[in-house]
Design a protein around this nucleic acid. Structure first.
Lengths: 145, 145
DNA sequence: TTAAAAACCGACCATCAATCGGTATTTGTA
DNA sequence: TACAAATACCGATTGATGGTCGGTTTTTAA
């Protein structure tokens, strides 16, 4: 309104982890390419979506600051690569997402499984059973897929 | 820049489904309370976080327009309730999230399971097996994705 | 009919991804 | 060592969206 001077600001420390469209594209790119510098990433996306090298650089930097990419200066350019394995990253997202809608004492991961399992067909149930079997064999430090 | 007239706008039709903090609170509230009008919701959150009734009303309306709440006018106020079951909603979120990082031909749900299963301990593996067993019994018609 | 209750409208702020121009650094080389 | 090219970094703008709430319109019950 006219007087918005008294507007209050609730302290927020929660870590939003929302990714933009370009950020997702680039992340996927790095799970397929392992390593690249800004110029290479730009070359990859130039035709398919336009934009400038600068935009790519900014986005790489943003992803780096979010700890989703790591970088190392080789020659005169940063070499970027994915900081996390794809499945670990997805697992993290799922946990965060689920956690927002899970009671404090509830097992978040199991809640996610329960939610997901509703729509499974027989074939998927079979695959899931194989997955469990595999995990049973691997030690607690198991690598998985 | 000085000349931002030529700025281009890429057509976007993708359906973002990001929820704000208050939206999440209210959604969780309705999975616990089944039905309430704006005033009741406001009464519930008034002390714990302040704000006005209007803010609650706006947020309820936003959630309604996002198809996350349903409403029905009883007396002189809308009675709101959750439009989806909690686990269905979570499953949807997980699928969307996972889909963003899944190859086009990949099974999104299975990818989510694979991602999630990395960090499971024995007890959780047991629970998961029980879950599968249950679904084997209760699922006559395989629904699929 | 009318007063109160609720819905609705519109505005503002904050945050954040995307975008990109311009400048500062850095590096390889002459 | 000096310098030019390549790259990183800074800062500004736009668009979207959630939160916030005042003010007005609509609806309902008496």
């Amino acid at each position: 309104m006219l007087l918005s001077l008294l507007r209050f600001k609730v302290a927020r420390e929660g870590e939003r982890m929302n990714l933009g469209e370009l950020e997702k594209l680039i992340l996927n790119y790095f799970w397929q390419t392992t390593v690249a510098d800004a110029k290479q990433v730009y070359a990859h996306f130039e035709q398919s979506r336009g934009g400038t090298l600068n935009t790519i650089q900014s986005t790489l930097d943003r992803l780096y600051k979010k700890d989703l990419l790591s970088r190392e200066k080789i020659g005169h350019a940063f070499q970027y690569r994915a900081a996390k394995q794809r499945k670990d990253f997805i697992a993290g997202l799922i946990k965060d997402t689920t956690n927002d809608f899970t009671k404090p004492n509830e097992d978040t991961i199991m809640a996610a499984f329960v939610s997901l399992s509703s729509g499974l067909n027989d074939e998927q149930l079979d695959q899931l059973e194989q997955l469990i079997k595999k995990h049973r064999l691997t030690t607690p430090t198991g690598e998985g897929t």
